[in-house]
Structure formats: C-alpha cells, structure tokens
C-alpha cells in the first residue's frame, strides 16, 4: 500500500502498542496536539493519556524518566519534537541510557526508543536544523537508525521498539510527507542491514535519510550521461552494515559518501576509514565525501542552500571521481 513516511511511523507504533501494553509514548505535544508533526495522530484517542503522555518542555526530565521506566521493565518510546532538543537530554542519553547495561555488569537493560526528526527543513535556523547522528554513533551502547523510505521506516521502527537496547531513531521533517510502497501486514526489518536502493557498476554512493533521495536523483541524472551508479542506504548507522558496502565497492571500485551533517568528524569519515581498511585494494580512486558545510546552518535561503548537499554537488563529485568532470 502507498503510505507517507509519517503514516508508516504511525502504523509501526500503533501495531506495536496494540501488541505490547508495556510500550508507552512520551514527549511534547504527542497526545492532544497529535504530535508536532502529526506522527501520533489518533494515539491518545486509541491508547489514552496513560500510554500517550504529554510532557512539559523538559527533555532531560522526561528522557530520564523513560530510562528509569525502561530499567523497571516498561518499553518507552520517547518522541523528541526535534533531535535538536535531544541536546538538552544528552546527559541522560549518553551518561545513563548508553551505559547502564555495561556499568551494571549486564544486570540492567534499557529497552528504549528515542525518536524524532533531524536535519534541516526549510530555513528553520541554526538551532533547529542540525544533523546530529554522528554524535550518537560515537557513543558505545546506542544503536542509531535513520531510514529514508516509508517501508524502511515502518519495519525498522518496529524492530527498534522490540530491541532490548536504547535506540536513537532519526527521522527527517522533509521526509514526513514523502510517499512510498509499504508491505501489507506484519513485517520488520532487521537492525544493521543496508539496502541496495539502485543497482549499478561504475560508482557506489552511500547515502541515508533525506540524502538518499538526493543520491537517487543524482544517480538518475548520471545515468543519462552513461554513468551507472549503485546507491546504498545503510538505514542503520550503528551497527553499520559494512559488508554490503564492501561488496559494492569491490564491484565498482569507487565510493562517494553523502551526508547532510558537518564534514569534520562526520559519519562519512568513519565509513571511509572502514572501507579503506576493508577494501583498499579494490578502490580505483580516493573515497569522496559530499557533506554539509562546517558552519551553523544559516537562515537565509541562498546561504542555507549553500550549506547543504544537493544533487548538482553529488553529480559533480561522481563525475570528477570518474574523470568526467
């Protein structure tokens, strides 16, 4: 069936909440307001305010509460209105959620999903436009997922909810309205499995979340110039499915990594390092990265456009790598 990304997330949580009464949803405006981006439409009506909990603007407090509830056997889903506000809760996420299993020598666990939109939308300014996935990926003890399609969003969110670990699940405001085919009936997608979104033989592009759409559009344009691009979406950023990327690079010999986040210490740097270690001999050219510029995201339209990767930049990176610039 054709669903929007927003509807796919809604279905995933709805199905899981019907299945397991230990699951509850907590966050700002998730209940009566139906979610700031309407992802939880109809939830408070179906599950009631005990399980769909509206909070004050206190991310550290309610994230910590959710971690505590998870330690006591519940399975919370925390909705962050946007990932930017996760910074307010970062102490809870990094110092508690990620470490409690380890510090307790395996006695405690924190089955928790923290989800919400990351990345820039349309000119929301520096404090509301950040791609922070690399921060979370850096921390041992967390899983990080950033799906790009409605189908992947649904299957991965269900897996995240069933996982026994803290999972950071990053959506994107500009993806909520996008539509795609979603399997009928019950399904999950395993965490840690990449997906080849387009087959090709000349160059591999790795891109996730919103940037997958940019990469696919670039691949389409390049195909008209006889460049056959393979596009891989890791979907899960940690643990990363390196094998799928390695297999592709062995075939194409060329890798371009696209990410919206900042370049310095970005996720692409890690992926490049992993590929250099695992597949150096197969590379015909240095790995290229197309990233967000290393600046706070500016408000003004032309500046924001300049700060974020777009199709022409991806096309140019691929061409220059193939000596066709």
């Amino acid at each position: 069936m054709l669903l929007s990304y927003r509807e796919a997330l809604n279905q995933a949580m709805r199905e899981e909440m019907r299945r397991d009464p230990r699951i509850f949803l907590i966050g700002e405006e998730v209940g009566y307001y139906q979610g700031a981006f309407k992802v939880t439409k109809g939830f408070v009506e179906e599950f009631g305010p005990q399980r769909v909990v509206d909070t004050p603007i206190t991310e550290a407090g309610f994230t910590g509460l959710a971690i505590g509830a998870a330690m006591a056997g519940l399975r919370p889903i925390v909705e962050l209105m946007t990932m930017n506000f996760g910074i307010v809760a970062l102490d809870q996420i990094v110092n508690n959620a990620a470490k409690i299993r380890y510090m307790s020598g395996g006695q405690l666990s924190v089955p928790l999903v923290i989800r919400g939109p990351g990345s820039a939308a349309h000119q929301l300014g520096a404090q509301h436009s950040q791609s922070l996935e690399a921060w979370f990926c850096h921390v041992p003890g967390l899983k990080v997922i950033a799906p790009a399609t409605p189908h992947d969003a649904k299957g991965l969110l269900k897996s995240a909810i069933r996982d026994h670990n803290p999972v950071i699940f990053i959506e994107a405001q500009l993806l909520y309205g996008t539509k795609g085919e979603v399997d009928e009936g019950e399904y999950t997608i395993p965490i840690g499995q990449a997906d080849v979104k387009r087959q090709g033989t000349d160059v591999t592009i790795v891109a996730y979340s919103k940037m997958l759409l940019v990469a696919l559009e670039a691949a389409e344009q390049l195909s008209r110039e006889d460049l056959d691009v393979e596009v891989i979406d890791p979907r899960t950023l940690k643990p990363l499915d390196l094998q799928t990327i390695v297999t592709s690079v062995r075939k194409t010999g060329r890798l371009v990594i696209v990410e919206e986040g900042w370049r310095f210490c970005g996720l692409g740097a890690q992926i490049a390092e992993s590929i250099y270690s695992a597949a150096f001999d197969y590379l015909d050219a240095p790995i290229a990265r197309v990233t967000g510029e290393d600046v706070p995201i500016p408000y003004s339209r032309p500046l924001e456009d300049a700060a974020i990767p777009d199709v022409p930049r991806v096309v140019a990176a691929v061409k220059s790598m193939c000596g066709a610039a």
């Binding site: 300014g125 404090q127 509301h128 003004s300 339209r301």
Partner: peptide, 15 residues
C-alpha cells in the same frame, strides 16, 4: 533573509 538584516540573514526571525 537579506544581507542588510540585523544578522545579515544568518539568524532569521527567532535569532
């Protein structure tokens, strides 16, 4: 979002 804005367009309404 213009260059002549208080923050040269980098801030916007909220900043």
């Amino acid at each position: 979002g213009k260059a002549t804005g208080l923050c040269q367009g980098k801030g916007g309404s909220m900043h």
